[in-house]
């Protein structure tokens, strides 16, 4: 027995350099995606992100008992703003993104990734891409299904005018997953036990979004919810939407946050030692 020599001409690697970033990132993506999709975490996330679809079905069935002013599209607005952008998507990001590196460290498989000729940044990039594809694949179909179930209650004729909102909402859903994903990736490489601090951030710190003055600008959710154009009805819960930040400011702020969080995570991951307990 001996090690495996290359077939003639088969080894085209430049051994003086790490494997190119995108090639390495793609290999990490392929390795991570299957594990991520077929995990117990994904089963939970299917329930969490898919929940509005059966609720929308119930809403269709029982709409005749609700006040006539609550329409299907209004209910859809509440689902997007309160359920997805404020709660479910950040929670999905928390549970997936904090685990990108932590799962490999806890499973002690990180050694295999760190003893390959690849830049550590490509490991993080590949894993982040796998997280995005997984969560988008779970969230977007549920959003679309919920939209159709709720906007076609009284027939298909009125639905057409809402389709631009659907596309915009899908964009906000993606942006929410990227932004919170970047934030929780940073927390995941920074902290040994990131889930509790992450939950505190989501359900305590993010409440500042409802505070007066400049305080909402210190949250993530204030920017994301301002990007949702259609609103719930003008009464009741509408007060918490009082502060709508300009779209340009929201996009700039969210873009800056994504860059800063991901760059911070990449820097920490690239310079940190992973000492595994035997």
């Amino acid at each position: 027995m001996s090690a495996i020599p290359a077939a003639p001409g088969a080894d085209t690697r430049d051994q003086g350099r790490a494997v190119p970033f995108f090639r390495a990132g793609r290999a990490v993506f392929d390795l991570s995606l299957e594990g991520m999709v077929w995990s117990r975490r994904s089963l939970l996330m299917i329930l969490l992100l898919g929940l509005p679809a059966p609720l929308a079905l119930l809403f269709r069935i029982f709409i005749t008992r609700l006040p006539p002013r609550v329409g299907g599209f209004d209910f859809y607005g509440i689902v997007i703003a309160f359920y997805y952008v404020r709660n479910a998507l950040p929670l999905a990001a928390l549970f997936y993104a904090t685990a990108l590196v932590a799962d490999e460290v806890e499973g002690k498989t990180i050694t295999y990734l760190l003893t390959r000729p690849i830049q550590r940044m490509s490991v993080l990039a590949g894993k982040f891409a796998a997280y995005l594809v997984t969560t988008l694949a779970l969230a977007l179909p549920a959003v679309v299904l919920t939209f159709f179930l709720l906007t076609t209650i009284r027939g298909w004729s009125g639905m057409g005018s809402h389709v631009p909102d659907l596309f915009r909402d899908m964009g906000v859903v993606a942006l929410t997953l990227v932004t919170y994903g970047a934030f929780f990736t940073l927390m995941g490489v920074l902290l040994r036990r990131p889930v509790i601090p992450g939950l505190l951030f989501l359900f305590v710190w993010e409440l500042l979004a409802n505070a007066p003055g400049y305080l909402p600008r210190f949250t993530i959710t204030a920017y994301l919810r301002s990007l949702i154009h259609h609103r719930p009805p003008d009464e009741g819960m509408a007060e918490i939407f009082a502060q709508v930040l300009p779209t340009a400011l929201c996009l700039e702020a969210v873009g800056a946050m994504i860059v800063v969080f991901l760059a911070g995570a990449a820097w920490i991951f690239s310079t940190r030692e992973y000492v595994l307990d035997q």
Partner: peptide
């Protein structure tokens, strides 16, 4: 990292992607 073109590591930990 480029060293790992020419270095192979067999870690002690009994850890794998079990699936």
């Amino acid at each position: 990292p480029e060293l790992f073109h020419r270095v192979g590591v067999c870690p002690e930990t009994d850890a794998f992607w079990e699936g």
